[in-house]
Design a protein around this nucleic acid. Structure first.
Lengths: 315, 315
DNA sequence: GCAGCAGATAACCGATCACTTAGGTGTGCT
DNA sequence: AGCACACCTAAGTGATCGGTTATCTGCTGC
């Protein structure tokens, strides 16, 4: 399986014809035909078969197309990235759990990018707790914002606390729920699906079964639903302060809460750290960064906005 | 540049040593050394240089690492995907603009997945309007939910209206803003950064400059900020109905609003459509789907939850 | 039934890949 | 200085890649 074979396949799939692909690549038709044949043999799947009008993909071919298209594109990207590396701003990849990124990701990236004008290019990603350590130690991310990761066996990482808060359980002022907390309807954000998150820990401690949870794409949506009386929602106290102050939501008396929560920043040891990562570390201990972490939901300017990407481990 | 060369590079970068990588691959040390040499020559960058302790990456090497790691992983994934294609559920990729996915993505995927139990595997992605047509026509997505895409030159796509709403501008009941709308503080979601979106069209029409916009990661966060009096926010009327009913937000009198907005579903023509895509099309005209589109923010069950991914074109 | 077309197969060829063994070179340590 | 270690380079080898031309096969349309 080579990249040339894959790009031949992608082209045939898109154009629906071997001949057309051969013309596009300006090679002979058998060259393309053989590339496909090699893939077929290697993967043990016909991938494309002759149909009445053009080539038609098998189920396997369909799967391959999306992946192969990415590989081909990445190949080109790799070349471009390396060639333009000198003089370009240093990329800095910051990952965090869902909640952290939702509230602090954008503003942090915005502020840090502005401060180190043009020399670093910050991007923010959402990652699962269990993969954070690996992502940082394998240099696929420069810093992780989330729980303490220093204890990992054999991986030399440095975790430092940057922020403390308390997790409480909120509900609409009027609403009453029956039975013990484990029977209440729990409205949670995506963090709850990450077993290593603080929310998941709290829910496990209370014995809440999956059937009593509804997952919302982000914390703010869960608050909205809770304010409408649909259930209760676990939340960091400082993030919901506007809601609690206006009494749209009030803290409920739930065993185990308020729960102490600490956010750590995790990086490689100082001597293996990139310059950008080092100055991010410094930035995180400034009052400005503290304020951004504490104050929920400030928007960023359009030119700086970048959607967070879900990062998973590419082993 | 071959996949074997790239995986050798990734391994050396991770282990920090050519020898260690060679051992891990159980080949001789020069084999790895030469793979790196070939990459160096091809890309014209040292990538890794000898440093006091272990190999240290150049700027170019750093860029290459992230991309190469993905390529290697995708290679393995491609094999697995094709090999397990028979009998596995058909993957169905639905893309939409930011707002659509935020409110309707999860519930739609949840409901459609449940209805066609086990035979399709729905995943939802966010895409930019300008890339939607290409993504669908190149079969990198099966359906797009967003504006009408049928007019594109030469690309045979079918767009059908599935939903109508009106876009209004909302603000906190008490708040007063000075001057003309173009000088107000506008709190927008990520859709506003997509020039093809309805929000961007509205803002352009009003002549709002970038400097007067603050971008929030999602619409709900923008509402929150607007309810706090920080500015005004454009929004689809039906999505904000809870807020307007509770009078946390009220519609403002802005020229050009309310603006008619229609969501279309775009797919390949019927004869080129996959089975899953066809039944998704049918599902979208059921009352259940209509209800999901109309009613904002229902959560999904934890086992079904999947974070939306940002999809871009892989050329 | 047959021409015409598109794709597969065959036979062949030079270039490169991936790997080996052998020897050269740079760096850190005692 | 000299040793040890890790990396690089050289030379050689079989396998495969990527390409060609020529030929075969299967389908479509008339």
């Amino acid at each position: 399986m080579t990249l040339t074979q894959l790009s031949a396949f992608v082209l045939v799939a898109r154009l629906g014809s071997v001949k057309a692909a051969a013309d596009a690549l300006s090679v002979s038709e058998p060259a393309v035909s053989q590339a496909i044949a090699a893939l077929r043999k290697y993967l043990g799947d016909p991938l494309l078969t002759r149909g009445g009008t053009g080539m038609v993909m098998t189920a396997g071919g369909n799967r391959l197309l999306t992946i192969a298209a990415q590989m081909v594109a990445l190949g080109a990207e790799a070349e471009a990235a390396v060639r333009s590396a000198n003089g370009a701003p240093e990329p800095l990849r910051l990952i965090g759990s869902n909640t952290v990124v939702e509230f602090a990701g954008g503003p942090l990236a915005d502020a840090f990018g502005a401060r180190s004008s043009g020399t670093v290019d910050v991007s923010v990603g959402v990652a699962v707790t269990s993969e954070m350590a690996a992502l940082v130690s394998q240099r696929l991310a420069d810093a992780a914002l989330g729980p303490d990761l220093s204890g990992q066996r054999g991986i030399p990482l440095v975790s430092e606390p940057v922020f403390r808060s308390r997790m409480v359980v909120l509900g609409a002022p009027g609403a009453r729920f029956r039975g013990s907390p484990r029977q209440w309807p729990w409205l949670v954000d995506a963090d709850a699906t990450d077993p290593g998150s603080d929310v998941a820990r709290l829910l496990r401690g209370l014995g809440v079964p999956e059937s009593r949870m509804r997952v919302f794409p982000h914390q703010t949506a869960a608050w909205d639903a809770a304010a409408g009386g649909a259930g209760v929602t676990p939340s960091l106290a400082h993030l919901a302060v506007h809601r609690t102050r206006r009494r749209e939501l009030v803290p409920l008396d739930v065993p185990g809460t308020p729960m102490e929560v600490v956010w750590f920043v995790t990086m490689l040891p100082i001597d293996r750290r990139s310059a950008g990562a080092g100055s991010l570390r410094n930035f995180l201990s400034t009052p400005e960064a503290m304020r951004l972490l504490r104050e929920p939901g400030a928007g960023v300017s359009p030119s700086r906005f970048r959607p967070p990407v879900y990062v998973t481990i590419w082993n």
